[in-house]
Amino acid sequence: MMDDLPRYSNKMRGVFSRDNLPKVVLAVSSLPIFIAAWWLLALYLQGQGYFYLPTPLEVWDALVLAWTWDPVTHQSLLSNIGASLGRFVVGFALAVGLAVPIGLIIGYSSLVEAFSKPILEILRPVPPIAWVPFLLLSLGLYWGPVITIFIGVFFPVLSNMIFGVKSVDPLLIDVARTQGASNKQVFTKVVLPSSIPYIMTGLKIGVGIGWMCIVAAELFAAQGGGIGVLITAGQSIGRYDIMFAGMVVVGLLGIVTLALSEFLERRVKIWTGMM
């Protein structure tokens, strides 16, 4: 009855297949080698007295110390993480909530695009961090850092959104119209769903930029602590180990949120049949 049966790809091979073994060994050994090299370099530099690089163990101790109550911000590490994460979530949500509808409109209407493009092209190249001094002074120590993230996340999400709308297959729009769809239905039932994968790509890029922005803003000042605050506090009392502890935490948060957004992207792509 069927003309020909669907073919499924045969690409899924075991991670531990023989071809992959050298790669697996390399991947598993790279982190221990990195930490060992760091350790040796730290000991060497400390012995020579050029400058102080804390060893991994010292950073670990600083993390343990900061976990409960660090001597500079007088907060627990979790409350510092919570402060940064809170700003991140608010700024990120604001950026996505505005960039998605604005991007949809700009991508859909060439008139709106003609008007808004010059404005966007002037604002886009300004690094979000350049806004920080102004934002802190004018908006204060909570909204200043939040709006910095907003600026950092807004533009990549917007660009992807516009691109997504423009990449809609015109054939699908023809199909919808021959099926009797109104302009509004073409928008909600064709343009919007076809743009979803592009929204997800924008979110992923936004996550990385978001963390950069939040820490950069907190390095200036922020209300109620934060990882950036912890790092500058460590600097102010010359505690290298605490600065490094802050860096490690930011890195881990970045990995977790990126993994989360990649997971979400995969789910959405599967859900929308793109994968």
Binding site: M2, D3, D4, L5, P6, R7, Y8, G273, M274, M275
Partner: peptide, 8 residues
Amino acid sequence: PKQLSGGM
């Protein structure tokens, strides 16, 4: 659609 052949 990704899982279907051209004829299908």
